[in-house]
Structures are given as C-alpha cells and as structure tokens.
Design a protein around this nucleic acid. Structure first.
Lengths: 164, 164
DNA sequence: ACATTGTTTTGAATAAATCAAAACAACTGT
DNA sequence: ACAGTTGTTTTGATTTATTCAAAACAATGT
C-alpha cells in the first residue's frame, strides 16, 4: 500500500503497524480504498466503540491533523454502506458507531452518564424479532435499547438519596 | 374555561366541542393550564399519532393560524414532562409523538415509506425488559423498534422486482 | 376584577448532518 | 516505476431539527 504515513513503518511503531495492516485488510476486504483517514477512523473506532462522529474526529485529529470532520462523516458513511461499521441512534444522542456488525446485538444506555454497552439479545437469540402482531409487515430487523442506570451512576444516585 | 375559540360552542361544532372538553380535561388532569395551542396540538395528535413537530404544526396552523412552531415544541415538551404524550425517535427520523402512554408498547417502522404502527410487546409482556446480561445496570425501560416493509410497500417492491 | 404564574410569541442561535465542486490520492494495468 | 481512472478528501456553504431567551400575553385562584 502507499498510504501517506507509511513512514510509521520505519518509525518503530511496530505494534500499531501490525494493527494498521489488519485495519487495512478490513477496509480492502470491504471493497474500499485504503486511505489514511479511513485507517485513523477505524482505529479510533476500535479503541472506543460507541463513539459519535465528533468524538472520532477528535481522536483522528491527534493521529492525523488536517483531517476534516466531513471526511470523518464520509468515512463513516462509506464504512456503513460497506457493512464495516454499524450506526446506532439512541434517542437524544447524536449517531454512534461501532465495528461489531453482523450479529443482532443490542445496547444498554445509562440515562445519567450516557455510557453505552453492548448486550446480546435476550433469551439466547431474537425473541424480540417477532412482534406480537407484525401488522402485515415483513420484519427485517429489531432494534432494542435498554435504558437504565449504570453501576457507577447507581452509586452516585444512592449518595444523593442518602446524603441530603 | 375561557380559552379563545370557545365561540366554537356556538358555531354548531358540537362533536368537536365535546372533543374539546375531553381534551381539556386531559390537559387539566395533567396539571397544566388549558390553552388553545395545547388543545389544538392534542387534537392533532389524537387524529394523527406518530406525527413529528412539523406535521403537528401544519395541522395546528389550519385550526389556529398564528400558532408558532416554537409553541408546538413548547406544548410537546410540557406534555412530555406531564406524561401526557410520549416521544419516540426512530433512527433517521425527527422525533415523533403519540398520546398512547403508560404501557410499554413498541413500534414497527416501514423502511421504505416511514409509516409507523404500534405493536404490543412480544410474548405477552416485557420479555425484552430483561437483557441477557444487564452488566450491572438498573434497567428501567426497554425500547424496541422493528424495521421492515409495510404491506403496501411489499406490494410495490414486488412490482419492481417482477416488472423490470 | 386582579394578581400571580405559566404560556406563547418573536427572533436568534445551536448541533448534527449533508451537499457540491474542486483538489487530490489510491488502485489498475502497463 | 508511471499514467490514467476512479474514488476520496478538502473547503466552504447549507439544511434540518431543535433549543434558548426576553418580552408580550393569557389562564387560573382569590
């Protein structure tokens, strides 16, 4: 490959260089050209799943200054189309992205601190995929978001309650 | 009540006048002041559930010209806080509103025409409320959105497929 | 009727995402 | 290694959905 930044190979970044090859392979396998912004976005997304475009932009910037926010959006759009990343849009939040694709896992979101975690579908698999009455719809997907308090926020809430 | 527009009582709109009283009662019971914009929004929402703010604004406008979009947003916010309406935010759509509250019903959305219908929770009630692993979260709610093709759009797709 | 409190209007601002054209870089075949 | 083609990124502007804030106004309790 001829991606700008290849000089990293000489710079002794062996570990991340390996990463870069793996990332590059994913991108190539998806039928996309391998570019520096794409590698940077994919690495950022690997390190912090459930990030929004702006957070990824922030992360990419430090690795690759000069990258534009629009480029990040463009990368995420192409990744999404290619099936490399999944986009989730919890209510009240900008879109979040993750590399875990292909399974139908769901998400649990803290209503207090907005942290997001993956959860597997309840009861082994896909009980939610069959609505009580599909109303004639041809159902292709079911998206479940659980809302609640994460353990740290439970602790914090408890402090508030017991310490008036 | 002294709402502007009470003249409708004289204008022979007996049916909608009854409606207006029922609507007013809902609003009052929620602890909110009864105003013309609130009645108009609540009526519009009764007639077309799963509307977005802009659609409601359009409907309200014809009944009560001079109402501002911001008023509609304000009404929806107060209704939401008071538990009079529920707000849903399907991915890729502006927020939608509905009067059906208090049960944990879900939604099925057509990926082609964006029509939204209510669906009851699968398997009687709340199987989805217990994720496979709650990861220490105190889960308060589960939100399910089914995505698929509504029956009209299935027909349309079929035409496209068989009529090249 | 009046005062209080809450609501609506008016006008502006924000956040998230998208569009479009020109500059540029990656892959293909040579 | 090289040049052409195609796809990507930059730059700059625009759109959509929503929120904020102050002043004008209206609904309820007395």
């Amino acid at each position: 490959m001829t991606v700008t930044g290849e000089s990293n190979h000489q710079a002794g970044l062996r570990l991340t260089a390996v990463d870069a090859e793996l990332l590059a392979d994913s991108i190539r396998s998806a039928g996309l050209k391998v570019t520096a912004p794409r590698l940077a976005v994919l690495r950022a997304l690997t390190e912090r799943p459930h990030s929004n475009a702006d957070a990824l932009f922030g992360a990419v910037r430090t690795e690759l200054p000069g990258t534009s926010l629009q480029a990040v959006y463009g990368v995420l759009t192409s990744f999404g189309t290619a099936g490399l990343v999944r986009k989730i849009e919890p209510a009240g939040s900008p879109a979040l992205f993750e590399r875990r694709v292909g399974d139908n896992h769901h998400h649990i979101v803290c209503t207090r601190c907005d942290v997001v975690h993956d959860v597997d579908c309840a009861v082994g698999h896909a009980p939610c995929l069959t609505p009580a009455d599909a109303l004639g719809f041809d159902v292709r997907a079911a998206e479940v978001i659980y809302w609640g308090l994460c353990s740290s926020c439970q602790a914090a809430e408890h402090l508030n309650t017991t310490n008036p």
